[in-house]
């Protein structure tokens, strides 16, 4: 049930831009509007585009459900693990244990309006990336479950 050649070419061109935009939203979640949930949804839109332009079987050969399942579980585990690790640093659950001491994302932020530095935020960017991975897997699994049951044979126009 793949669409016409024009739609497939457009999907091929748009696909990397959608992916880059989604990763940008996820990674810049602590600086600009957006975050893990929104960016993961944008990345899942790329999977929708592929499913619409190509047939389901063509997509499912290169994108297996196990990858999405594993990414969803990995995202949730990374989220809970980052939150739990604050207990070993002597903070409360979800305490910001990277904020001033960690190797990454630990630059202190000045109060007021500043242009923003990607290397700030403590656990906020880590949790953003974890949620982004999880939402990507979850939305992809939902789309594959719902669109995967369609009959792919016959009357393609």
């Amino acid at each position: 049930m793949s669409m016409s050649n024009l739609v497939r070419s457009g999907a091929n061109i748009l696909m990397p831009f959608i992916l880059v935009f989604g990763f940008y939203i996820v990674v810049h979640g602590h600086l600009s509007p957006g975050g893990g949930f929104q960016g993961g949804a944008v990345i899942a839109t790329a999977i929708v585009l592929l499913m619409v332009a190509y047939s389901c079987d063509e997509v499912c050969t290169s994108l297996s459900k196990n990858i999405l399942k594993n990414s969803e579980t990995l995202g949730l585990l990374l989220f809970i693990g980052t939150a739990l690790f604050a207990l070993t640093a002597g903070l409360a659950f979800f305490g910001n244990w990277i904020l001033d001491t960690g190797p990454l994302f630990a630059t202190p932020v000045a109060f007021g309006i500043n242009p923003g530095n990607l290397n700030t935020g403590g656990i906020v960017p880590v949790l953003n990336i974890a949620v982004g991975i999880e939402v990507l897997g979850a939305m992809g699994l939902l789309i594959l479950a719902m669109l995967g049951g369609m009959k792919g044979d016959g009357d393609a126009e």
Partner: peptide, 15 residues
Amino acid sequence: EETGSNNIVSGVVFD
């Protein structure tokens, strides 16, 4: 200063 993120909404939601 407490969450380290310029986006206060992200600071509230994730911290």
